[in-house]
Design a binder for these strands. Sequence first.
DNA 1: GTGCTGTTTTGAACGCGTTCAGACCGCGGC
DNA 2: GCCGCGGTCTGAACGCGTTCAAAACAGCAC
Lengths: 221, 221
Amino acid sequence: MPTPTAKSEATRELLVSTALRLFREIGYEKTTMRTIATEARVSTGSAYYYFASKDDLVHELYRSLQEEHRALALPLLREGQNLGELLRIVLNTGIDVMEPYHDFGSNFISISIRPSTTTSPFGSESAVARARAISLFRQAVAMSRPQPPLAIRDDLPELLWYAYMAIMLFWVYDSSPGQLRTRRLIDQAAPLISKLVILSRLPVVRKIVEDIVQLIRGTRQ
Amino acid sequence: MPTPTAKSEATRELLVSTALRLFREIGYEKTTMRTIATEARVSTGSAYYYFASKDDLVHELYRSLQEEHRALALPLLREGQNLGELLRIVLNTGIDVMEPYHDFGSNFISISIRPSTTTSPFGSESAVARARAISLFRQAVAMSRPQPPLAIRDDLPELLWYAYMAIMLFWVYDSSPGQLRTRRLIDQAAPLISKLVILSRLPVVRKIVEDIVQLIRGTRQ
DNA sequence: GTGCTGTTTTGAACGCGTTCAGACCGCGGC
DNA sequence: GCCGCGGTCTGAACGCGTTCAAAACAGCAC
């Protein structure tokens, strides 16, 4: 990547916005690279000058949604709410921003999970994006009262992000009208998770929780 | 699908075995439908007569691996072992059978998760295959001593299958030599899960566990 | 202006997954 | 033998993602 000029940056932006719009309007498969390029009034080759692949554009969508999620969720979080309530907000706003893209949700997940090197939410390429997503949960944890036990406070945000991923997976396959079942799931799961966190203070439970935390830390290399 | 004759069944089998061999030997991308057809000495059109898509062949691999897993795991399970040990066996044999396919593991997951209708391990098409996979965990649960608490005994197998899926995901991204880190994860996670199950007897914990079980049941429609 | 250098753009071409109209085969009825 | 019919097979063709050599452009030096 050479240094970005104003013009090239504009072309890039135009391509992204066109792609995202088409994804929303006509779905993933029907949105071809040729269509994107044509609608943005450039050649297909040009699209590839800016984006390595179609998946790369999906990754762009991922990033964009994440920022939107952040912008929507953060103002709603109030210091002193309990964790369950904060979680409920973060999870629900997460679904909110993804709503227009539900139809190609499975493609989304499928692509996100894919390739060896880039673009995957678990791969190194998107480590930055993932960290940013987790930081939203970190924010929620920090604001919650009572504070979660120290023993897990540091690792909790990552755990919550995993739960969020699981819920996303559920959402993708949720064909109920308006994905209401996912909403219900969130409303039930959020307080439940909160209770689990509190439970982790119990002496008996504590030992195991510590083991689990160790395990998770182990998975991080 | 018309009634299968011996000849067509043979062609089908030939295609499956060729495809699976090529997947193993040269990976997913490099295995083209044309190659599969050519190696099986039929035309590409013929391959499509038997399989709706390339993904469909991957689904075939999924089923095949599952049967292999079953055949490998069941004889190793002994009545009276504790749940942790049984789990360790089931999870490890699961990895064993997938080992030769690690290189295109991410494609595997990606495809499995995909499309709206067929082939997905969460979709209705493969409900049968999924049930069969879960039944392996059901077997393990049934054999374990002490028996898990009644409150969760029925739902535990499905929960364990979810854990298995999570471990598979970890495995796919595990680039350590021989995927040793996944093995370590299993060895740690298995007894831990077992302890969690025991913990669920505790009066305080019990309430929450019941809520969780309710939640899971809710997700099943 | 001309030339030079690096960025941006082009469109034809490649290989792939997939489709489909038609050919081929095997067998029961005559 | 021939006919018809349903299952099986073929290969050319389509549309897509992607690549690439070459063209166009922009900025700067002279």
